[in-house]
Design a protein around this nucleic acid. Structure first.
Lengths: 194, 194
DNA sequence: AGATTATCTGAACGCTTGTTCAGATCAAGC
DNA sequence: GCTTGATCTGAACAAGCGTTCAGATAATCT
């Protein structure tokens, strides 16, 4: 046997990335074999190499795609007039965006060490760009006298760490709705920098 | 050849755990082989099985040991009179304890999914116990009117996530000293709950 | 000094790994 | 309807995996 009925690159390609994303998130990059991914897609392992040159690149493409999505979604968000409004918008954006794609967020934090140094540098650069967006808000707010932050770099990382933590416990349909969660976190962020 | 000069359980045992901790932290549990650990220790792979029944137990023992250390260190910390003092003490304790053992902290967050369900449940229980210590402080402070927190459970997780984030960027000998870092984080925590 | 025991080696076990590739098959273009 | 090219199979490769164990050696005990 060989090519199966209805097989096509437009279909199989995304399914490979989906399966890889799910499996990497569940078991970790190193613990997932190409054959497992292939089985999930419904294909033999060799066929995967029509869609990725190797396993490493498959991981890298997932992480890079996630970071690209993050940065372009941030760029598309409506511009707010004042630093406090910008910070509130950023807070809500971050929570919402991250809760919408928990698997991609998960592997983006867990699998960095499985990237080659060159690939790692690329992802790290994208992450820094995102952090700088938040830091710029904090600096503007401090300059305007609206925020009281000792160190904008550390505050940036502290806020992002705090917000990303939502992904470890939030389950849709749980005790709190998404707007309630956003409100609680925004309340903490606002007070922390005021 | 067989037993090497000066070989002894009291020496090799800790060295196995040390090597496993370092390698697991650097490359991840699944990516590290028993032969790599053995090479680091300076021994053949088979000899490791004098010190652990299998690789899974080796990981579990590292995580359980870390959580035991955490909980007993917390229990040994001096008792503070008021909730704000308790919260400050907790904040400083958490930062200091975690910065002292970055590798153990790292694998305790990253390798949970590589535990068997039974082992996972044990570690999860220990983690919950630590979280409950912080939540008790927040509840006491709210009851006393010192803290204004909407949801003590979420605030607990938010604070821990924020504080643990220090491990991702802090390097000793860097721009900020440990006391400065503690002060900055305590400032944010204090304001966030007030 | 001789016997005992803890410790380690080295080889072996069956199995899985990422990746390659010739050949088979299906979809599309003319 | 035939050809061409994209897509997939199935087998193969060398390498590495966790784990076991008989035998060798060094430390310890009497």
């Amino acid at each position: 046997m060989a090519r199966t009925a209805g097989s096509h690159s437009d279909i199989t390609g995304p399914r490979v990335r989906e399966a890889a994303l799910t499996l990497f998130a569940r078991h970790g990059y190193a613990a997932v074999s190409m054959r497992q991914i292939a089985r999930d897609v419904g294909v033999q392992a060799g066929a995967l190499y029509n869609y990725t040159p190797d396993k490493q690149t498959l991981l890298f493409d997932l992480l890079q795609g996630h970071m690209d999505d993050l940065l372009s979604a941030l760029a598309d968000a409506p511009v707010q007039p004042t630093p406090p409004d910008q910070l509130e918008a950023f807070t809500r954006f971050h929570i919402r965006f991250h809760l919408e794609r928990p698997q991609a967020v998960f592997i983006s934090y867990m699998e960095l060490r499985n990237l080659t140094p060159e690939n790692f540098a690329v992802i790290e650069d994208l992450r820094r760009r995102y952090e700088r967006a938040l830091e710029a808000i904090l600096q503007a707010g401090r300059d305007a006298g609206a925020f009281h932050v000792v160190d904008t770099k550390i505050t940036t990382l502290a806020i992002i760490a705090m917000l990303t933590g939502v992904n470890t416990w939030y389950r849709s349909g749980g005790r709190l709705s998404l707007p309630e969660v956003e409100a609680i976190y925004w309340d903490m962020v606002r007070k922390a920098v005021t």
